[in-house]
Design a protein around this nucleic acid. Structure first.
Lengths: 107, 107
DNA sequence: TAAGTATTTTAGATATTGCTAAAATAGAAT
DNA sequence: ATTCTATTTTAGCAATATCTAAAATACTTA
């Protein structure tokens, strides 16, 4: 009689949950959310984002490094400035749902 | 000449982003995600959830209190046990997207 | 090469998270 | 009333998050 591993699906669930946690932690910050929302409309450089979001360049740079490390954005230098752009379809999908929930006119 | 407040939409954005942050922080934890996923299929008592998720009752209870405080779940005592159920359409919407992203068979 | 602009990195302070262990509460059963 | 079972609450600790200030890096221009 072969021993079936019934807890495998539990381990799979834990693995999925951990991946989702890592992903959600990137989004679970008001400043990073605003950064990502600004990038939805196209690439922006750090100074522009800093002004739009209202963060110091240093603080913003740390957020950007985090998002880039997580694979949600990419960067490209052109001359003095560095341009960031959204590169995660998953992030865009979740942002779209969040916008429906939290950015309705009446709320 | 009337002075138009152009930063109003920025303040609105900040408000929305803060609300979204509060919401996402509740989800951005593997154990809480698993709890919520278990509740998608119907109400459960604390002991059952603790076993399913693999958490101590105390730790779980703290997570449940948090989720309840955030309005994502409700509880009802029946006899000795306390039953929890999902009560947030918003949470369900995001969980559905996360499931599509992270719980595909091949990943 | 020196000076300026854009951005990143580091260090450190403070707040939040999430666990464990122990004590407290609430209802049920004896 | 006492005891049992289910759950919550509290206290305390280690890890993580996020800001500021200061120093470092990278490219451009004089």
């Amino acid at each position: 009689m072969e021993k079936r591993n019934l807890s495998l699906s539990h381990e799979a669930m834990q693995r999925h949950a951990s991946e989702a946690e890592r992903f959600l932690k990137e989004l679970a910050n008001a400043n990073r959310l605003m950064v990502l929302c600004h990038l939805v409309s196209g690439e922006k450089n750090v100074g522009d984002i800093a002004e739009a979001v209202g963060l110091s360049q240093s603080a913003l740079s740390q957020h950007l490094a985090r998002l880039k490390d997580a694979g949600l954005i990419t960067s490209e230098r052109r001359g003095l400035m560095i341009y960031y752009r959204l590169c995660s379809a998953e992030a865009q999908a979740v942002l779209a749902v969040l916008q429906l929930i939290f950015c309705r006119e009446h709320s």
